[in-house]
Each structure stands twice: as C-alpha cells, then as structure tokens.
Write a protein that binds this DNA or RNA. Sequence first.
RNA 1: GGAGGGGUGGCAGAGUGGUCGAAUGCACUGGUCUUGAAAACCAGCGAUGGGCGACCGUCCCAGGGUUCGAAUCCCUGCCCCUCCGCCA
Length: 425
Amino acid sequence: MLDPKLLRNELATVVQRLTVKNYSFDEQAFNELEGQRKALQVETESLKNERNVRSKSIGKAKAAGEDIAPLLAEVNQFGEQLEEKSAALHAVQTKLDHLLMGVPNIPHESVPTGKSEDDNVELRKWGQPKEFDFEVKDHVDAAGSLMDFESAAKIAASRFVVMHGPMARLHRALTQFMLDTHIADHGYQEVYVPYLVSADSLRGTGQLPKFEEDLFKVPGERNFYLIPTAEVPVTNIVRDEILNADQLPLKLVCHTPCFRSEAGSYGRDTRGLIRQHQFEKVELVQMRRPDESYQALDELLGHAENILQKLELPYRVVTLCGGDLGFSAAKTFDIEVWLPGQSAYREISSCSNFEDFQARRMQARWRNPEQKKPELLHTINGSGLAVGRTLVAVLENYQQKDGSIVIPEVLRSYMGGLSVIEPSS
RNA sequence: GGAGGGGUGGCAGAGUGGUCGAAUGCACUGGUCUUGAAAACCAGCGAUGGGCGACCGUCCCAGGGUUCGAAUCCCUGCCCCUCCGCCA
C-alpha cells in the first residue's frame, strides 16, 4: 500500500509515476472520497469531543451527589447525530481503503519505461551457451520415462508431474544444494513455514485483494489458500511486529512447494515442467532498514546468480521495465537461464525490492535508534531458485549425444557420487 | 471430541462501569556520580489519524451490542494455555 499522506500531498506526482507501470489512477474518485472523508471525520470527531466532555461532567455531578437528569436529557440528542455521521465515515473509509489496497507500488526512478517484457533491459550475461554437435532435445524428451506426465494427469490433471528414480533424486539434490549454499555461503537462516495461509497474509504481501484468481483456495469455513510462493508465509513472519535494530538485517531462506492456478495461461507452456500448478522453489527473503534495501537487492540477486554459476548454467539478468513490473514491486531483476531446447533465455528467478509497500500492509516495522517513532521496514525477495525450472536447465544443458545426462559437479555429493544418469534405461 | 482458564504498551504484569491511554517492574533514552564501565540515584519514555498550530479524535485480540459514559458488562468470531480422550 502507498502512503496515504503521499497520495494526499503529492497526488499529481504519484499519478504521473504510476503511468510508468501503465496504471491509470482514478484521481477523481480518490479526491471525491478523500474530501468526504475529511469533512465527515472532522464532524464526527467534534461530536465525539462534545459527547465525551458532557459524559465526564455527568460522572462528576453524580460523584458530587447532584441531580443528573437534566444533563442526561441534554446529551441524548448527540447519540443519533453521532451514529449517523460515524456510519457515513465508516462507509467512506471502507471505500477509500479498498481503493488504496488496489493501487500498485510506485516504480523506482531507475526502472526503464516500457509496455511488456519485450522492453526489459538486459543488464549482463554470464556464461556461453554450449555448441552441440547433435540435435538437442528439450527437457521432456531428454528426461524420457523418468519424467512422467501421463501418471500425473491420471492422478491429478495436466500441469502436474511425477518423477521417477534418479530424476526425483536430482530434483531433490538441486533443492538441497541451493539451501546449503544460501545457508553456508550467503548467511541466510532456514525457516520452515505453513503451506496454507490466511487471507490476511495474502493481503500483506499483495496477492489479495486483486489476484485471487491466481490462487488455489481451500474450501471450508477457514478461508485458507495454498501458497503461490514462500514469499507469503516467510514475509508475514514480521507482520505486526516491531523489530529491534540488532535483529536486522533479517535474511531468511525457505524451501516450499508453490501452487498456482495458472488461470488465463491456457495455451502457454503446455509442454513439460515450465509451467506447473505445483512446483518447488527455494526463496530468499530479506527484511532491511530502508537505506540499505537497494544494496540488499543487488546482494540477493548475486546470491541467486551464484547458484547458476556453480551449476555452470549460462544466464542473463534483465531489469524489468515498468509495464512488466509486478503489483507490489518497486524494482525487479529477472534471471533468465539458457535453455538449448528452446534456444531461448527463460525466467528462473525474479528478485524484487518492495520498499515499504508490503511492510505498510503488514505493519512490519523496526526501531530506528535515530528516530523516535518506529519506521516501516523494507522487504526484498527473490527465487534462489525455482527448482523445477533449474532441473529443466540442467537436463537441456547437460545432455549428451548418447542420451545420457551428466550430473553437474556440485550436485554429485547429493547424488551418492553418481556422475551421469541414463534416462533411456 | 469433553472440561476449564486467558488475550492489556517493546516485554512482563496490575486494573471489573466515570479525568484510565492505563499502576508497577524490565528494556530503552538523557542526566548525576566515575579515569572508564557497572551499580545506585534523578528525569523521560505506547501507537495512530486530523489540524499550520493551540489542540482534538481513535486504539487495552477482532466485529457487533448495552449505556449519558466500556479495558471493565453482553453476543459472535479468531488465537493462546491447562487437563482428559483420540491420533501422524
């Protein structure tokens, strides 16, 4: 959520900067509601003041043993008026809150303008795509029967997968390798979290109220949702908390499954592991003091990149343009890994700084010793990495002419020393 | 599933209808003392909305209700704890 004060005081600037995100802010609706809110609030508050003053005098009169009947008669008329005004205020406030919850974050000034992902700006490339002296397979063909979409479709539906034997193990090895690297080399603390979350948590990170159709909702009285990313439970750890300065920076790493409805992506990436309803991800989340958050974003991006470097997978980093930026993000870098099967770079990580946007929704604050008041934190997160897509990248980049797949060096200890798998067998 | 007990400031913990936004302790901040630190002592210290401001409003889990007046009484929901039963 944006700072309501900023909206009131510098509306024109905010509206202008939101156009970078291709968002047109309804200035008229906002001004109308804001005007009503202000008038009603002033009226309600002065009525309340009047009532409080009189009630106190009744208390005093009663204590002094005086007759309070005339005072009671006098104060009665306030009740109705007050009720009316405060109901009206409540209604306006609710509308205003709803409007505010639907306004996206303001992009950072360094964010390039642009409409779609075609306008994203390449920041750097790492590694050389390998030349193959045979016809490369995509990951589905390379994996053969070890990756079993037929069984998954029978058990659940399309966009699910069953993995067998060494493929399942390779998938698990990737997860363990990522977690261990972030813990040992990058200074993150591992957390284990719920995979079902409340609507409040989803509002905190920005998935609700606008993007309910992307989520799996669990039927029942409890209103649980399956997490679309570990970002939701992990970031909400600090909801309604005030952290001490010595607790910062808080760097958390978490492995979870992620569940996405993929409503509205019917034709896209229907083949293989790229776009699934359920996938594993290792997520990096940081809570930082505001003046460190952009440095933190660079660091976190580097931590995600390091995984690909250790796996020796070529990739590039792009800066998302305004039009491709997510609802809650102020700035986002995507890491795209080279997929020989598609002859293309595909997203494998998305690293964002949300500044105080999520923190304001969550009321997540810290005590800045230099300030009297608690201040909002900045939240930063990124995939480190999407495990399924990393598996795709390994299969496609490490395939050999004879159909076998070489296990990247850093994964072998997680594979019981295995150096190659033979999907055909 | 059954029976009880609770949710109050950063934390702990008083407060059961009328200057209670809330005692007290801890933590924190400033000061005295000290070569420095600790201890001791003194002082300060919740959050949030509106207003240029004097000020005013709101907040004692959440939402309703009773009342002139609610942290305090009533209803509903959520969460936590203890005991019994069941169970991965």
